[in-house]
């Protein structure tokens, strides 16, 4: 019985909610403390980091664009690697998406094969793929193209497969009812429904691939990364700055182009 005038308690959360929140906070703090205490960092380096970064930055200005023709050539190579690799990845992703979508897969074995391809492609990073292909085919653009292609197949295939799984069943039923064979049903009832996603996903992946292509050179797989690695190894920081600026321009251009394409196509 609350008497008038006695102050009533108010809490934002119920006791149970408070307990859950308290445990979450505790866990969070414990993990943070564990990570901070056990991570292998030489702390003086951390306190010196602003200095070191400042120093590095100081050596980068002003950027040295005297090797602009090399830079432009490398940018072009980067662009080509990204574009060609996206093209090949699209060709490879189409059949994989088809067998990895539950409603179009011929049978269970193909379904799992498709999923296996998608997962292994997606979980291995582009650079790790690049390491492998550099070891096989030697340093160069081929390793880069293959690395980007192999990573992109999983991305494209997964999103396309999901698009296939989400199509409207009704037109498919209608086309089947006309007596059309499997291939014609795909052509007339499935493909038209997936086309918008196909373009959106391909453009998106091209944009991502452009970014990824800028670092392929760091493991020897071609593109502007090669130039960057060389400049860093020889401590030409002003050239490094020029290359970094060039990369920003390339990436922003890629973003602008892909945005424009998206608005055009869809």
């Amino acid at each position: 019985m609350a008497r008038g005038g006695e102050s009533r308690q108010w809490h934002r959360y119920t006791p149970r909610q408070r307990l859950v929140r308290f445990i979450s906070y505790l866990l969070f703090v414990a993990v943070t403390v564990w990570a901070l205490r056990s991570v292998d960092i030489f702390w003086p380096w951390l306190f010196d980091a602003p200095n070191a970064m400042g120093d590095l930055f100081g050596r980068m200005v002003p950027p040295d664009f005297s090797r602009w023709s090399d830079i432009v050539r490398a940018l072009l190579e980067t662009l080509n690697i990204a574009t060609i690799a996206t093209f090949f990845a699209i060709l490879m992703a189409l059949p994989v998406a088809y067998i990895a979508a539950q409603n179009t897969t011929p049978n269970k074995a193909f379904l799992w094969l498709g999923r296996f391809i998608l997962v292994s492609s997606r979980s291995v990073n582009t650079l790790i793929w690049a390491l492998l292909f550099v070891a096989i085919f030697g340093p160069g653009v081929l390793a880069g193209i293959l690395a980007i292609t192999f990573r992109s197949v999983g991305f494209l295939g997964k999103l396309l497969g999901e698009a296939i799984e989400e199509i409207d069943r009704n037109p498919v039923e209608a086309i089947e009812a006309t007596g059309a064979s499997r291939g014609k049903v795909i052509l007339y009832a499935i493909v038209p429904q997936v086309v918008p996603t196909f373009f959106a996903v391909s453009i998106l992946r091209w944009d991502i691939n452009l970014r990824e292509s800028t670092v392929l050179g760091l493991v020897g797989a071609g593109g502007i990364g090669l130039l960057l690695q060389g400049a860093i190894d020889t401590f030409q920081w002003q050239v490094v700055a020029a290359i970094l600026l060039a990369i920003i321009v390339l990436v922003l251009l890629g973003e602008a182009i892909s945005g424009w394409l998206r608005s055009k196509v869809i």
């Binding site: 991570v39 292998d40 960092i41 030489f42 380096w45 951390l46 010196d48 980091a49 070191a52 970064m53 120093d55 590095l56 860093i232």
Partner: peptide
Amino acid sequence: KAVGFGPL
């Protein structure tokens, strides 16, 4: 390059 090899 700035802070050396390692997790930092």
